[in-house]
Simulated assay, not measured.
Amino acid sequence: MKMTLLCLLNTCLMATGQMLFKIGSAGKAVNSLFEIVKLFFTPIVFIALCLYAATTGLWLFILSRTPMSHAYPIQALAFPIVLFASMLFFHEHISGVKWLGIAVIVFGVFIATRG
Rank of each mutant, 00 (worst) to 15 (best):
K2I: 05
M3F: 09
L5P: 02
L5F: 15
C7I: 05
C7A: 13
C7H: 03
L8Q: 01
L8E: 08
L9G: 08
N10V: 00
T11Y: 12
T11L: 04
C12W: 08
A15R: 12
A15Y: 11
A15I: 04
T16G: 12
T16H: 07
G17H: 07
M19L: 04
F21N: 10
G24N: 04
A26R: 12
K28P: 00
K28A: 15
K28L: 14
A29L: 12
V30S: 08
N31P: 01
N31F: 01
N31Q: 11
S32F: 07
L33I: 14
I36F: 10
I36G: 02
F40V: 03
F40I: 07
T42E: 09
T42V: 08
P43F: 08
V45E: 11
F46L: 09
F46V: 03
F46W: 02
I47H: 01
A48Q: 02
L49A: 08
L51M: 14
L51R: 12
L51P: 02
Y52R: 03
Y52T: 01
A54R: 00
T55H: 03
T55V: 10
L58A: 01
W59C: 02
L63H: 05
S64W: 01
S64M: 03
T66H: 06
T66S: 11
P67C: 00
S69T: 03
P73H: 07
I74A: 05
I74W: 02
A76N: 10
A76W: 01
L77F: 04
L77Y: 04
A78S: 11
F79P: 00
P80S: 11
P80N: 11
I81K: 13
V82Q: 06
L83Q: 09
L83G: 13
F84Q: 09
A85L: 14
A85G: 05
A85C: 05
M87F: 08
L88C: 11
L88W: 08
F89W: 15
F90P: 00
H91Q: 12
H93I: 15
H93M: 10
H93G: 03
I94W: 09
I94P: 01
S95T: 15
G96L: 15
G96P: 04
G96T: 10
V97W: 09
V97A: 15
W99M: 09
W99C: 08
W99R: 01
W99A: 09
G101E: 11
I102M: 15
I102E: 12
A103R: 00
I105R: 06
V106A: 14
G108Q: 07
V109F: 12
V109W: 05
I111R: 04
R114I: 07
R114H: 09
R114V: 10
G115T: 05
